[in-house]
Amino acid sequence: MNIYITRRETFSASHRLYNENFTDEENERVFGKCSNPNGHGHNYILEVVVKGEPNKNTGYVIDLKILKSIIRENVIKKVDHKNLNIDVDFLKGIIPTAENIAIGIWNELKDKIPDAKLYAVKLYETENNYVEYKGE
Rank of each mutant, 00 (worst) to 15 (best):
Y4N: 10
Y4Q: 10
I5F: 05
T6I: 15
R8A: 04
R8Y: 07
R8W: 05
F11I: 02
F11W: 08
F11N: 09
A13G: 09
H15F: 15
R16S: 05
R16I: 15
R16Y: 01
L17Q: 04
N19V: 09
N19G: 10
N19E: 13
E20Q: 13
N21H: 14
F22I: 01
F22D: 04
T23K: 12
E25N: 10
E25S: 14
E26F: 10
E28K: 15
R29W: 12
R29H: 14
K33N: 13
S35W: 05
P37V: 07
N38E: 11
N38H: 15
N38L: 14
N38T: 09
N38S: 12
G39P: 11
G39I: 00
G39A: 07
G41S: 01
G41L: 09
H42K: 03
N43M: 06
Y44V: 01
L46V: 02
E47A: 07
E47C: 12
E47R: 13
V49R: 03
V49Q: 04
V50Y: 04
K51C: 11
P54S: 08
T58D: 03
T58Y: 04
V61E: 08
I62H: 02
L64E: 09
L64H: 12
K65A: 12
I66D: 13
L67R: 06
L67T: 08
K68A: 10
I71N: 00
I71F: 08
R72K: 15
R72F: 02
N74K: 13
I76M: 02
K78R: 12
K78Y: 12
V79S: 03
D80L: 05
D80F: 01
D80I: 01
H81Y: 14
H81E: 08
H81C: 07
K82E: 05
K82P: 01
K82W: 03
K82D: 06
L84V: 03
I86Y: 15
V88I: 01
D89I: 10
F90K: 07
F90E: 08
G93F: 09
I95E: 02
P96T: 03
T97L: 04
A98Y: 02
A98F: 04
N100W: 06
N100K: 05
A102T: 06
A102H: 00
I103Y: 04
G104R: 07
I105Q: 00
I105E: 04
W106Y: 10
W106M: 11
N107M: 02
E108W: 00
L109P: 08
K110H: 05
K110G: 03
D111M: 02
D111T: 09
D111R: 00
K112L: 10
D115P: 04
D115Q: 14
A116I: 07
L118K: 02
Y119T: 04
Y119N: 11
A120N: 12
A120D: 13
V121Y: 05
V121P: 02
K122P: 03
Y124D: 07
Y124I: 08
E125C: 11
E125W: 12
E127G: 15
E127S: 15
N129C: 11
N129K: 13
N129A: 13
